[in-house]
Design a protein around this nucleic acid. Structure first.
Lengths: 224, 224
DNA sequence: CCGATACGGAACGGGGCCGTATCGGTGACT
DNA sequence: AGTCACCGATACGGCCCCGTTCCGTATCGG
């Protein structure tokens, strides 16, 4: 566990089970092994095994795979974990194009399912905890996954600013946090970590309309 | 690391370096050792040592203390970490009593300093990551620290509902997340994890007034 | 067919940590 | 003065893990 995990072992190739070189001699890599290993990690974590208790040996055992087969694909646990994280990510939200409000809802809805949903939640929380605590891994994950999501959200917000649905007098990054943050808080801070069905819509409307009671017409109206 | 960390070793006494029994014979426990140990953990983490790399042996070494001295106080690493977390917590926010809006700001301001502030941030993030990943520890920490903060926030919100500053048509827990979540998002998701000075006030006003541009009595700026 | 590379399994030497025990010494009680 | 629990230090057996290397076998390209 404590053998001073190689710092740059991730940056090397960015992870990934090493695409098989086309003009390759000999027996090809088994795709089954690839997924068996990833699945083993996920399954162990889902069973409540903390990351600290995960060793390469145990992972290989659970996957029914030789240790060498794991090391042939990843240089170490960090690189493996990074791929596990990536495997939890899905390509991208479609970004429908309805009203900005609806886009926001579906973006948060996407978050609700992915990552923060019931089953995956223990899983993602555990993995994220580990990655978060390791600067190298975190930087990589941030650049890969989080930034993409953030950009998607920013896109929607920009559209909202352009068409007047979103106020223009604040930093867009801050506004983005207003939408994502409550989901995060709910998933991380409370005892029940599953996110109820209607939450995204509720949150979006609340954030849009504000917490103050004053009644608002749907669109802009000069009050006072 | 992987010796199946005793599950209930925390619940026993809830941690804490074992208050010295009054009618006690012999040499009393050294309070200096108590704090040296806690400080050692903090210092190591601040130096970027991941929790997985923290061993009781190393902690004792860093603290200039015999291993036995550590084990005399805490039954294991989990209990120790729990106390370390607690040591990061400060008694409580004063809860001033100005306008509800101002109370919210100072509550978030309190959060900004405590826990999420610059220096403590790496520290708290690391420790929290570890605790979060261990259900036993998390439950304990949640019951002790998080619940208290949440209740304080709920109190302010209730006052707001009573005097009309806060809308009454939503779950208070949800509203609470609206305020805390963005702070969390900012501290956890971004690359710069320090929270700028004016953030709490900005957030509170944004959440209160809403993200829609429609002009409101209190807010001047009308966009587009 | 042959050489190359993969596979699962097992073993290797090296190392760190766990939690306990045992030192000689120390200091606050009675 | 005497007692007794503390102190730091050191050592212990046991365990697990690391990352590599070696098997014998399987499966590809040439």
């Amino acid at each position: 566990m404590n053998r001073a995990a190689g710092v740059s072992e991730v940056a090397a190739d960015g992870g990934r089970p090493a695409a098989v070189v086309p003009g390759r001699r000999g027996r090809p890599r088994s795709a089954a092994a690839d997924s068996a290993i990833i699945e083993a990690v996920l399954s162990l974590i889902e069973d409540g095994v903390s990351i600290a208790e995960l060793s390469m040996e145990r992972i290989a055992r659970e996957a029914g795979v030789g240790k060498a087969t794991v090391y042939r694909r990843w240089p170490g646990k960090n690189a493996l974990m990074l791929d596990v994280m990536r495997s939890l990510d899905v390509p991208s939200p479609p970004a429908a194009g309805l009203s900005v409000r609806d886009d926001l809802v579906s973006l948060l809805e996407f978050l609700r399912h992915r990552g923060l949903a019931k089953r995956g939640s223990a899983l993602l929380r555990t993995v994220v905890s580990h990655v978060r605590a390791q600067p190298e891994l975190w930087a990589e994950y941030h650049a890969t996954v989080i930034r993409a999501r953030h950009e998607a959200l920013l896109g929607v917000l920009r559209r909202g600013v352009a068409n007047g649905e979103i106020r223009a007098d604040h930093d867009l990054d801050t506004l983005a946090d207003l939408f994502v943050g409550p989901m995060l808080a709910r998933a991380l801070l409370h005892e029940r970590t599953d996110l109820p069905e209607g939450l995204p819509a509720d949150l979006v409307d609340l954030v849009l309309e504000g917490v103050r009671p004053g009644v608002r017409p749907a669109a802009a109206t000069a009050a006072g």
